[in-house]
């Protein structure tokens, strides 16, 4: 979903979406156990957000790769660099990983694996995590401003929102990304 208010674009992203912008944009998403990683280049004022379901997938041809963190973060980095961001300046914020949909807390549960993966990936890539709001039992709405890197988080009362999160997890992005093409010259 994409609309504009007060000269600032507003974009809502769903599971598997990745959005990067070089112009002022508010990117928002609703998270349960999923993770949203936000990356921002403070010099170029270029930022973006993704929304992934699980750390890694099975590489099946019909899977939407950016539903998985390993591709969703790499895709976000690539999109930001295409817009002129420098990865050496990028800083990160991480949100999500809540225990919703009846999930219990355990070290190998989806929320913990997601949080651990996001932190590990960003650390391996050398991105400083400036802020995070992860875990807990409540879904979150995250709004990230691409022009200044600020993020707002609203934790939601569980009733009603859990069903919304569940529906979202089953939804298909408007333009599902696929694994990349191969061209030999």
């Amino acid at each position: 979903m994409n609309d504009a208010t007060n000269g600032k674009d507003r974009v809502t992203i769903y599971v598997g979406d990745v959005h990067a912008a070089a112009h002022p944009t508010e990117v928002r998403t609703l998270l349960g156990s999923c993770i949203a990683v936000c990356l921002f280049d403070p010099k170029q004022c270029i930022g973006g957000m993704n929304h992934f379901l699980l750390p890694e997938g099975s590489h099946a041809a019909d899977e939407d790769p950016t539903r998985f963190g390993v591709y969703a973060i790499d895709d976000l980095i690539g999109k930001l660099m295409m817009l002129g961001a420098d990865r050496r300046r990028m800083v990160a914020k991480v949100f999500g990983g809540a225990h919703v949909l009846g999930m219990r807390e355990s070290d190998d549960g989806v929320p913990q694996r997601n949080v651990k993966f996001a932190r590990g990936f960003l650390q391996d890539e050398g991105f400083k995590i400036l802020a995070e709001d992860v875990g807990g039992y409540q879904p979150r709405i995250v709004v990230f401003s691409t022009c200044d890197g600020k993020a707002r988080v609203k934790r939601l009362a569980r009733s009603g929102m859990v069903e919304r999160v569940a529906r979202q997890h089953l939804s298909v992005p408007a333009e599902p990304p696929k694994f990349g093409d191969v061209t030999l010259f």
Partner: peptide, 17 residues
């Protein structure tokens, strides 16, 4: 360049190429 592969890559396609 000899070829152009778009990410995200599928391991089998990468090995084939």
């Amino acid at each position: 360049a000899t070829g152009w592969l778009c990410k995200p890559f599928q391991p089998t396609k990468l090995c084939d190429a």
